[in-house]
Design a protein around this nucleic acid. Structure first.
Lengths: 288, 288
DNA sequence: CGATTTATGTAATTTTTTTACATTTTGAGT
DNA sequence: ACTCAAAATGTAAAAAAATTACATAAATCG
């Protein structure tokens, strides 16, 4: 975790003098990393050992080590204090904040993803007879994105936005079919029901959803990217991005599993798009 | 600039001993930031002042300052060596690499986005009679996501995947209508044509697409997130994520522009989703 | 209120970094 | 090949910084 967040988190547990140090550092971290323990102590109006003790309390080896951590925290531009969008933010501010909080969210998500589950999911997907991607609301577009990706693998894939179609699809499942469900909350009733139906018909259900949610319980495999969602604006933001990155991870795993010959096939798909493009000298990508 | 890159860049200008230091640091930067000048000198088999001189040559104040810079370089998780997925990567590796390269891409994208254009786009969107979102291929799901978001604003919005529908939609445009087009390359013929049609019918065209592309030239406003796309796997990855974040930025700008009363309305939309959910004690988000 | 724990500061110690200077190496010109 | 100057590198001492040990002060609890 970012050490500045950690300071903010633990600030209540600090003693009076330590809090003085914390405030000076939060107030101007740049100054802090360029100061010696003596100058910092002077600024915070405490003694040098107090600063040192403060550093140790944050599980660093000492002052120099603390500065290193702090420097790293400042470097990656992550939302260290309060990077939530504020009412009075101008375009410059909210643009940066949105980008930064998205990056921070991905960072958190990566740590929370269980690689073993990823590996199992890739296993199942490479052996699937048919893959269906479903999501509702904001997750519908995630499912569609997954379709677009897996479609290139020349594997039978399906994607419906319509709940009725989704149900019907799952009714017809047999062993070897895989159903991938996207849901941030894991509490959307129709989707949980679809998971049940799919399992009743021997399909393997992979959920990209919240841990311990009703949906997660219905899944054979569950990929749960923990995402600190900023609910201020009542919109799903980072969660769907994390889901998309999970798709990227799965497709990457899929491609690697299938080996190099398979990759030539992908190249063909890419090349086939060329004629629908305006010419350009360099190579280009088919993101459209 | 990242100090490690700088070392690599200047390594030819270094003297023999300094090069030894450089190599030790490049070889294991983590070790370097946790060593004292004495241990590092020993590892590199040079004297301590040599290490110090090496630091000064890189325009740092001295060894501790150099370590700070180095720590920052390591922190931001940027792919300073080679973070591309390798054929022999296991799940652990490729998962991390995909997440990291996505974060790095967002970081690049943020810097390249023109905030003034963002501001203008928000202006136009808040005054729009009707907003249409179009994209093809991988960008189709991006357009759908935009629809999902702007739909909550109680503004007339449209989104078609079908090129013919898209054209028809643009034929019927009048002044005050806004068409938002998503395309990574900006070279997809049908989409460029759609931009032309929309402009002929007095609509304002906002492009989220590559700078200086044929599509960009047809747009009134162009938002161009520069994204270092990893083309190894022949798939659009980071580009669509950057587009989604741009959507987040636009919706955020939109919400802020409309003021606090407007936000109550968003809350209503959110609450309306509640009944379709399984109960939970805490607050939840409607990401689905 | 007094005793005990906890917090903070002072001063000495140790570690680390930097400087000043000596030695070695390198290379150009003869 | 030799000499001398310039550059590079190392040694050892000085300075700076950080840490420790211990003393004093503040706070807490019975």
């Amino acid at each position: 975790m970012n050490i500045l967040e950690k300071i903010n988190l633990q600030i209540t547990t600090f003693s009076k003098s330590e809090r003085k140090v914390a405030e000076v550092i939060i107030d101007n971290p740049e100054q802090a990393i360029h100061s010696s323990i003596a100058t910092l102590a002077k600024i915070a109006d405490v003694s040098e050992p107090t600063v040192n003790r403060f550093c140790r309390r944050l599980d660093t080896k000492g002052f120099p080590d603390f500065k290193l951590h702090l420097a790293q925290g400042l470097a990656n531009g992550t939302p260290y204090v309060n990077r939530h969008v504020d009412e009075h933010d101008g375009p410059e501010e909210y643009t940066s904040k949105i980008f930064e909080s998205t990056m921070a969210a991905l960072n958190t998500a990566r740590k929370s993803v269980d690689v073993n589950q990823i590996n199992r999911a890739v296993d199942i997907l490479t052996q699937a007879k048919n893959i269906s991607f479903f999501g509702l609301g904001a997750s519908a577009s995630v499912a569609q994105d997954a379709l677009n990706k897996f479609f290139r693998f020349n594997v039978p894939v399906t994607c419906f936005e319509d709940v009725v179609m989704q149900r019907m699809n799952c009714m017809n499942c047999t062993e070897g079919d895989v159903v991938v469900l996207f849901s941030h909350t894991g509490r959307t009733k129709p989707l949980v029901e679809i998971a049940e139906i799919a399992r009743q018909h021997d399909a393997t259900v992979i959920g990209v959803t919240a841990k311990d949610s009703p949906l997660a319980k219905e899944c054979n495999i569950c990929l749960s990217p923990d995402v600190p969602e900023d609910t201020d604006l009542y919109m799903p933001m980072a969660s769907r991005i994390a889901q998309l990155v999970i798709i990227d991870v799965l497709t990457t795993g899929f491609t690697l599993r299938r080996g190099p010959k398979f990759r030539d096939n992908l190249k063909k798909v890419k090349d086939s798009l060329r004629s629908s493009r305006f010419e350009k000298k360099e190579n280009f990508n088919e993101a459209s």
